[in-house]
């Protein structure tokens, strides 16, 4: 069984669009952050797929001779490793903002917040 040539990219794009739609269409701020996370991981899948070489193995060099062993590309791994940790940092900051917004407005629904702001203005 083979993975059809571009299948992984297409799935990554479907995930990406599911995340993007969650961010656009849902008014709940926590939901928006989860959508952002879905989007983020789809980008990771895209990158890691690009680094994969058929019949390759993880880029950890064994002690012995390495002739004939195919290693997958380590570069996307490094990029995504850093991206994951930056992702949690932004998520944490976003959640902290959501908590503060809830304390200030009593709601985390986008349209309710908008109503409150309009009434105050």
């Amino acid at each position: 069984m083979e993975v059809p040539g571009l299948f992984n990219y297409w799935m990554a794009i479907i995930l990406m669009m599911a995340g993007l739609y969650t961010v656009i269409a849902r008014g709940n701020l926590v939901k928006k952050l989860v959508g952002l996370g879905v989007f983020q991981i789809s980008v990771f899948v895209l990158y890691i797929t690009m680094g994969k070489i058929k019949d390759g193995t993880a880029p950890i060099l064994p002690a012995g001779p390495v002739d004939g062993v195919v290693f997958s590309n380590p570069l996307p791994h490094v990029l995504i490793l850093t991206a994951i940790v930056v992702g949690i940092a932004t998520t944490a900051l976003g959640l902290a903002l959501v908590v503060r917004i809830h304390e200030a407005f009593g709601t985390i629904e986008e349209d309710d917040i908008q109503d409150i702001e309009e009434n105050e203005a």
Binding site: V30, L33, V34, G37, I41, F44, I48, T49, G51, K52, I53, G56, T57, A58, P59, I60, F71, S72, P76, H77, I80, L81, I84, V85, G87, I88, T91, A92, L95, V98, V99
Partner: peptide
């Protein structure tokens, strides 16, 4: 996809800490 380091980080950070923070929120 051979990215063991990334998988390790994702499991610890994405599945672990992020979920805990989300529940904390």
């Amino acid at each position: 996809l051979d990215a063991v380091d990334v998988a390790f980080t994702e499991a610890a950070v994405g599945a672990g800490i992020a979920t805990v923070l989300m529940l904390g929120t």
